[in-house]
Computed example of a mutant assay.
Amino acid sequence: MKHYIGASNPMREQFNPQASYVAEHFSWSFADGVGTITLNRPDRKNPLTFQSYSELRDFFYALRFATDVKAIVVTGAGGNFCSGGDVHEIIGPLTTMTMPELLEFTRMTGDLVKAMRACPQPVLGAIDGICAGAGAMMALACDMRYGTEATKTAFLFTRVGLAGADMGACALLPRMIGQGRASELLFTGRAMTAHEGLAWGFFNDLYESADLLANVQATARALADGPTFAHGMTKTMLSQEWSMTIEQAIEAEAQAQAICMQTEDFRRAYEAFAAKQKPVFQGD
């Protein structure tokens, strides 16, 4: 059975990770607790359209309620991740829009980043080839990123006469690679090489293109086998503590950890340790 995703689709009630969801320009597969989203427009290096922005936003928001999905991998088809907003299907029409219409669009693109960061599952990017513009922001919104020698990541908004401040770039990128490096990339729009990304902390590791997806999915499965309620807490705290003082963060973590100590996974870990066995976590 196939479900077609649209902005009005009430997915809270009907999301089934085992189903084959087909959207305009991405596909979904699910196995062993890991869901894989594949941007699937390889002939154009997987650009985004108005429809695919909204579909991806809605899909990630729906994943908040998909308790069977323990980890998520985002990748692209055809040897590239994402070339950003489609020049003819997005950039051209934007030049004719009114200010309220433009603001509606820019808020929607930012909502995609917020949706990726709001879902409790770890999101891992398997990023090969071109990763540009909005594609670079999708990569940045992931919790972990893995690339290849061929990966070129460019926040190229200034190349089309726009500010580098797009979809949260000026907040997220400096926290990832540092203010000076982020400033260079956002002012110039130049591509960051894979090795720069690895050295600067943007990428967690690099793999051969042929091995990229399998390795990232294996990492995702290892996370899916872990204490997934606690993983969700870790993701929440990593986000929330940006705006806290050290004192506030320590108190927030004390409360978060006390909550995790009430889970069955915490009890299972202790009992397995006492029995000299490996714990089998269930996410509750």
Rank of each mutant, 00 (worst) to 15 (best):
M108C: 01
G92R: 07
K45R: 07
N9K: 06
D128E: 11
V87Y: 12
Q217F: 11
M237A: 05
D225C: 04
F155V: 03
M99E: 15
R117A: 06
I72R: 01
R181Y: 09
M144P: 06
V280P: 02
N16G: 02
Y21T: 02
F105D: 14
V123Q: 11
A126L: 01
L124R: 06
R267L: 08
L156Y: 02
M138L: 12
Q257T: 05
M1C: 01
I91A: 13
G76F: 08
D86W: 10
A230N: 09
I259G: 08
P17Q: 03
T96D: 13
M138W: 14
P10W: 01
M237E: 13
P120H: 12
Q255K: 04
A272G: 08
D111N: 15
T95C: 01
T36R: 06
D284F: 04
A194K: 02
L156W: 09
H231N: 14
A222W: 10
L206H: 05
A62Y: 02
Q51N: 08
Q51A: 08
G129H: 09
S54Y: 14
L140P: 09
E253S: 00
G76R: 04
M138H: 09
G168Y: 02
G125F: 06
R267W: 10
Y53K: 00
R190N: 09
M97Q: 08
E251N: 03
D43M: 04
M144A: 06
F229S: 07
N9Y: 08
A165C: 06
A163N: 13
P100E: 13
P100Y: 13
T75C: 01
D32T: 00
L103R: 04
A139S: 12
I90Q: 02
M97V: 00
G189M: 05
A163W: 14
F266H: 15
C119N: 11
K114T: 12
N16D: 15
A199S: 10
I91E: 15
K114Y: 05
F157N: 13
G92V: 11
R221S: 04
T36C: 12
P42N: 03
E251L: 03
A274S: 10
A210F: 15
G78D: 10
E264V: 01
C142P: 12
T245E: 14
A163C: 07
G197R: 01
G33Q: 09
C131V: 07
S52K: 03
R175G: 03
E271L: 13
T109L: 04
A249P: 15
P122A: 03
A154M: 05
E104D: 14
T38C: 00
C82A: 11
N204S: 07
P120T: 07
T96K: 05
L238C: 04
F203E: 13
C142M: 11
W242N: 01
F266Y: 15
G6Q: 10
F187A: 00
I246V: 11
S243D: 15
Q121F: 10
G180H: 09
W200Y: 10
A19D: 15
M99Q: 07
R44L: 14
T234E: 11
C119G: 00
Q217G: 02
P42T: 00
Q255W: 05
F50H: 05
A132Q: 14
E251C: 01
R267I: 14
Y146D: 03
L63W: 08
L223R: 01
T228S: 05
K276Y: 11
L103S: 11
